[in-house]
Structure formats: C-alpha cells, structure tokens
C-alpha cells in the first residue's frame, strides 16, 4: 500500500484529503507544518506528499528544499496545493522541486488525476 503524507495547517483540509486518498486505497498520515512533516519523513519516507504552501513554523517551500536534501528525500512525489494560484507562484513551486500542483479548492477527481500524473495511483 502506498503511503501519502498530508501536510497542511488546516485540520479540515487534512481531513478532506485523508478521506479522498483513503478511498483510493492509500495509507495516509498527517503533519501540521513543515517541521512536523520533516520529522515524519526522517522516520518513514512517504511515497507522496500533498503539501500546503503557507504554514507556520516551516512553510511548504522550505520543507521541500529540506526534504530533497534528506537521504532518500528525492523519491517522494510532491504535489503542491495552495490557494495562491498565479503562474509565478506555480512556476516557483515546480522549480523548487514539486512534481505537480493542485489549486484549492480541489475535489476527489482532481486529486486522483494529479496522483495518477505522478504515478502514485
């Protein structure tokens, strides 16, 4: 079973994302910010990360840079996910090493398509 880490400071978003991904037979764990997420990745590297951009403590951008430096940190597929949806922002996320990008609000179909796009489902 593939394992996906949801990183978002909103409990509601985490819950929605968890429900969507569990229905796609993925194993899901959660983190509230980049620092928690990094600790989770050190313990167990996920197959994919659904990553929010704006978070307290360590934001998505910083997390992504740190993640890619960890041993094995280049393997997880990272799908960025924010409400800031301008081209420059998306381009920056992709440049930072994200594999895909989801614009909020999202639904199950969109998440499914993006996870397919990066080869997780």
């Amino acid at each position: 079973m593939k394992h996906c880490l949801v990183v978002d400071d909103s409990a509601v978003i985490r819950k929605v994302a968890r429900r969507i991904m569990e229905s796609m037979s993925l194993q899901v764990s959660e983190a509230e910010d980049g620092q928690q997420a990094l600790a989770a990745c050190r313990t167990r590297m996920p197959d994919a990360v659904l990553l929010d951009w704006n978070m307290p403590v360590m934001d998505g951008y910083e997390f992504l840079q740190e993640l890619r430096r960890l041993p094995g940190g280049e393997t997880p597929k990272v799908v960025f996910c924010t409400t800031e949806n301008d081209v420059a922002h998306i381009a920056r996320a992709m440049h930072a090493g994200a594999d895909e990008y989801v614009m909020k609000p999202f639904d199950k179909e969109i998440i499914a398509v993006k996870l397919q796009e990066v080869g997780i489902v």
Binding site: I90, A91, M94, Y101, E109, I110, V113
Partner: peptide
Amino acid sequence: QFEVQRGLPIRLLL
C-alpha cells in the same frame, strides 16, 4: 481553474 486541473499536467499549463 477547475477545467485546467482536470487532466492537464501542470507543466503543460505553464
């Protein structure tokens, strides 16, 4: 936004 998200790889959107 909804229409471009369905099926369009972000690379192609950019």
